[in-house]
Write a protein that binds this DNA or RNA. Sequence first.
RNA 1: GGUACCUUAGCUCAGUGGUAGAGCAAUGGACUGAAAAUCCAUGUGUCCUUAGUUCAAUUCUAAGAGGUACCA
Length: 303
Amino acid sequence: MTPRTPTLLVITGPTGVGKTAVAIEVARQIGCDIVNADSRQVYRDLPIGTAAPTAAERALVPHHLVGFLPLEAQYSAAQYESDVLALLPQLWQRAPVAVLCGGSMLYVDAVCRGIDELPTISTEVREAVRDKLAREGLDALVDELRTLDPDYCATLDLHNTRRVAHAVEICRQAGVPYSSLRTGQAKQRPFNIVKVGLNMAREELFDRINRRVDAMIAAGLEQEAQRVYALRHLNALNTVGYKELFAMMDGTMSRQVAIERIKKNTRVYAKKQLTWYRRDPLIEWQHPSGAAQAIIRRLQQVL
RNA sequence: GGUACCUUAGCUCAGUGGUAGAGCAAUGGACUGAAAAUCCAUGUGUCCUUAGUUCAAUUCUAAGAGGUACCA
């Protein structure tokens, strides 16, 4: 079964649904590798809280882009896109399929559709914008954006500080309106994409999430968080499972509440993922049980 | 069996003679270089049932049902 064009099998879905197990089963049967598509599993030192594939799992199937960055690293969806695109041709030399497994919606889209070319923001611009925000407040940034890019300003949620600041950064850096750099066009990829979403009844999913958090605590999540506590200001640690435990360590939240908050925030995250997926017509939905066989059959049509 | 208290949102409860709220849950949405991030929006529920008083009852009265505690 030599493919005419290589295939990227995307396995995605809400957190806790069981993507890793299905991906490993599929990859073993096909004899291919797995590329991580989880924005937090890229960092080392967070294996428990991010439910990263274990050493035993990684011994079964070669994994890529897992635990390869220090927590201090600056990383982005755009960097991820180029990392994956550089990696895939190597994987396709060994097998006609590569599996992309993970639930970070923007990361998956960056690989499947691409994201627009934008200038890299210099340290000076970034700090100048941050400084303006701190000194003059969000309204001042909104006013600036209204001047620099009224079109984008009209579509943006102006309460969203992060987006406003980012838009101003890009306008300043590029010297043109941000909206003029936004194409809204999906890039053509020289490979097939089969996108499978795993999902189950909401009640079943939430039950799995709750139990998985308990399992993480039992596996030593608190110790894992303790070890990186000094770095808690980093974006990589602005993450469900860590921020709540940091609050506990700061004494602003009880242990019991912290654990409940982790469960709740994980549930909220799963819901947010599902909202994103709902508008993606390419996703073929499967229940995790029996998904591996269904996916193999589906791949036969492409290969 | 007796006495007291309770019955209001999925849960725990507050409250009022002019048909109702909080906390915790829960739900919908946005999303293009921080995305497990960031941001927006959402509370109709036989106020246990029936009868009575009243212009008006979830609120007062009575009976019934269920629950909790104590006493037998």
